[in-house]
């Protein structure tokens, strides 16, 4: 696939979707209406799906759209609608200036720390020579894009996989039990 690879084109789109993601995320946290916030979050997820694909994780990109944007976020929206919380609340949802500034400071601190750590750990251990390898697509022609994921998932991590399925089951049962309308006898 060497011949179809255009670094400039690739880089442009990578930055584009990255910036869209950041912008959507900022919009998401600042919206007062839960519905608007949810929609902006979905936008972030779509952007991320694009980035996954660009990072040669096509399968992940696909389920990002299907599961995250499609299923989970829909559930969120559904709940927002169900509880009739669509409009911005009378009570200001966002905290006062003080906490906001504090939160911003904390956020910056985390950002800085993560950057420092990533720089010292990851770049320190891998020389630029390895970075070149980055651009080599991971998926080979025979296995397609799914096999590299499916292999470890169903071999080494089979137990964990089964456990997550049990976890899901438990979560479903739990959600049903918790969400069940309590009879007058059960009500506290």
């Amino acid at each position: 696939m060497d011949n179809t690879f255009h670094p400039l084109f690739y880089g442009f789109h990578f930055y584009l979707f990255g910036l869209i993601a950041i912008a959507s995320a900022i919009l998401f946290v600042t919206r007062k209406s839960p519905v608007a916030a949810a929609l902006w979050l979905i936008n972030v997820m779509f952007c991320l799906a694009v980035l996954y694909v660009m990072l040669d994780a096509q399968f992940i990109g696909a389920i990002q759209v299907l599961v995250y944007a499609g299923a989970i976020m829909v559930v969120f929206l559904f709940v927002v609608m169900l509880l009739n919380l669509g409009q911005p609340d009378d009570l200001a949802d966002i905290r006062g200036t003080g906490p906001r500034l504090a939160a911003g400071a904390v956020g910056l601190a985390i950002l800085a720390e993560v950057m420092v750590l990533a720089r010292s750990r990851i770049q320190g251990e891998y020389a630029p020579a390895a970075a070149v390898e980055l651009l080599v697509p991971a998926a080979d022609a025979v296995g397609g894009v799914i096999a590299p994921v499916a292999g470890p998932l169903f071999r080494e991590h089979l137990l964990a996989f089964e456990l997550t399925s049990i976890l899901l089951l438990a979560a479903i049962v739990g959600a049903v039990v918790i969400g069940k309308k309590q009879g007058p006898a059960d009500a506290r």
């Binding site: 904390v106 720390e113 420092v116 750590l117």
Partner: peptide
């Protein structure tokens, strides 16, 4: 929680 995480990360970085 976040403050704790910040301090732990600070310790590492």
């Amino acid at each position: 929680l976040v403050l704790g995480a910040v301090s732990v990360l600070a310790g590492f970085s």
